[in-house]
Amino acid sequence: MPLDHRRLQGPDESQPPALWAGEGSGPRDPCALRPLFARAGLLSQAEGSAYVELSGGTKVLCAAWGPREAAEPGGGTAGGGGGGGGGRLVCEFRRAPFSSRGARPRPGGAAEREAEREAAAALREALEPAVRLARYPRARLAVSALLLQDGGSALAAAVSAASLALADAGVEMYDLAVGCALCRDPGHPSGAWLLQPGEAEERRAAARLTLALLPALNQVSAVLGGGRGGDPESWGEALRLGLDGCHRLYPVLRQSLLRAVKRRDAAHTPPGS
């Protein structure tokens, strides 16, 4: 079909703007972590809350509600939940309709709901080992994570934020669960793994991996990965890199928790005393 040149006054040739914008310069350091900002205790209505932002655009807001009486005593519906005498941890993961690049997914659509439910299950699996559920018999703890903007490594950020929110709510925990994501760049000759990939890196990745670690206990609470990752040695290398990343993120989260406690303390003590 011939183009109508009177209506479309563009140049004959065009290039995508991404060509000029350019993402960073040169190959990045695979071990580099994206700067992380964490703040706990920022929502007034929730019992515990946290906000985690990774530089590059991932923003997650989390709220946690402490023990409530479970509707069904004993917990544990078929196939899910806690059961076993302990409490139940209920996780929810929501993506804001405008969170991802490109077309807006229909909120409440089947595919969207499915993805959210899978992420919620992954979140629960990562957090359950960190929470002392045995201390809350017949009770339920609720965590809800809201992904405001997806700039890559969203699930990992959600794990960190959710464990911060739970700790902020005063829930008894063994340790904070620190999340970290990796991806394998297909363009790279040796197929090296990158720590905390951005959205663009994640999209073209050959394989992806999300880890959660309880650093004080040195226990891995979540491993979730897929793709063409190669032999176990390569995945092992990714695991080591990711665990190292988790250890490096841990002090930042702990600091933010301490700051939140201090802030709350200051608010409760009258200025005169």
């Binding site: 699996e125 891995v220 491993v223 897929g226 063409r228 990752g229 032999d231 176990p232 995945w235 695991l239």
Partner: peptide
């Protein structure tokens, strides 16, 4: 012998060393 998916299931956590062993066994 290539791995295409890896996932932890269950309520507990795993030691990093045991994960490496498990991958080899797997």
């Amino acid at each position: 012998g290539a791995l295409t998916c890896m996932k932890k299931i269950g309520k507990g956590s795993l030691d990093p060393e045991s994960i490496f062993e498990m991958m080899e066994t797997g």
